[in-house]
Design a protein around this nucleic acid. Structure first.
Lengths: 195, 195
DNA sequence: CGTGTAAGTCATTTCTAAATGACATCGTGC
DNA sequence: GCACGATGTCATTTAGAAATGACTTACACG
């Protein structure tokens, strides 16, 4: 992995001295790099360079790589169904999944970040706590009814699966294939709401 | 990550000089470590030590870490539905997923290995080829009927999702919860076969 | 029984990334 | 406008892993 961002030394004007903005820039770059390369593969130099910042600042602000990761996790979004309409959520969600990657870049990155976190022994423990609290909990509550926990796990599985498939193979679905995909996925998701 | 296996120097009897056996031992250890720690996190020293072998041998036999990974990928199993009974496969598969981790250690490891491979920029390209050929292809054929490709993608998603959920949270399902989980998952899977 | 080669071991080199601390500079408040 | 603290930069240290190549030992074969 080479330096891709703008080198601080190349920048025309040096960065304004704004601690908050700098922190935010680092965090954004970190989430991006962690999502793309995982915890080990994301190098502080690259993150710093992408943020247009000196690498040493990361240590100053976040106290090391792990601290940075924790901050990124805290700042990251979880897929949430809590505000969806019970009647149509299956279709809406399926449509979202079937969309082109560049239409949901933010979501895609956010999820890639979480998946990376899940598959690394260093970060997995931190993630698990967050997942239970910010993903499974809300789904369980939203589903409600008898055996909400078990049903929530199945639903979470399906959502995760759709996301993973989409992430691994970013080959877009088109035309009729896409319609079939959406219809099937929607049916599956919807069937998991009805108690 | 520290040295967990038996150090070669500690072994009572030095390893028998059997190239085939050595190769196999390295490969097994590699799959295990890659599954547990990912490509970057799995250290050749640890793999070697787990295999009861000197690290330099890995380079001799596989020509480096990437070569070792390629060999491990080629040697690894993909989830396959091809031989399942169309009538009962949903239930059988769901039951398998809901089982305790230690009951399916081999499968779990194999899948963890694949997931790790999928989430690493170095290894993802190698994996994608294999997935298409050895996972999506067979499912597509097995499903058959109209729009087999799209329907295969949904089904693959669900299978992957169940596997991932299970992998991330190894908390076992028990009692009634487990029955509900199986029943729901089975229904979902089975609904994807019917054309 | 030797001898040669395949198999295995060890020490060293090279590379790369995280962390650290000394140094420079901005810009704010007096 | 000047001084001091906060912010940013740079050079260096530390650490750890992959790769390399010279070396040693076992085993098969004559």
């Amino acid at each position: 992995m080479t330096y891709t961002g703008t080198l601080a030394s190349e920048r025309s004007a040096p960065r304004k001295r704004d601690a908050e903005a700098t922190r935010a820039a680092i965090l954004a770059a970190a989430k991006h790099q962690f999502a793309k390369c995982g915890f080990d593969g994301a190098y502080l130099r690259d993150i710093a360079s992408e943020a247009g910042v000196d690498a040493a600042l990361i240590n100053r602000y976040f106290g090391g790589k792990e601290g940075l990761f924790q901050a990124a996790l805290k700042d990251s979004m979880f897929p949430s169904v809590a505000h969806w309409d019970r009647k149509t959520f299956g279709y809406e969600l399926a449509k979202l999944m079937a969309g082109h990657a560049h239409q949901n870049l933010e979501r895609t990155h956010a999820f890639a970040f979480l998946l990376q976190a899940a598959t690394n022994p260093t970060t997995a423990p931190m993630l698990n706590v967050a997942v239970q609290k910010r993903f499974m909990g809300p789904i369980r509550e939203w589903i409600g009814g008898p055996h909400a926990a078990a049903r929530a796990r199945v639903m979470a599985s399906v959502i995760i699966g759709l996301l993973v498939e989409r992430l691994i193979r970013d080959e877009a679905l088109k035309g009729e294939e896409r319609d079939v995909f959406i219809e099937r996925a929607a049916t599956v998701l919807q069937s998991l709401v009805a108690s």
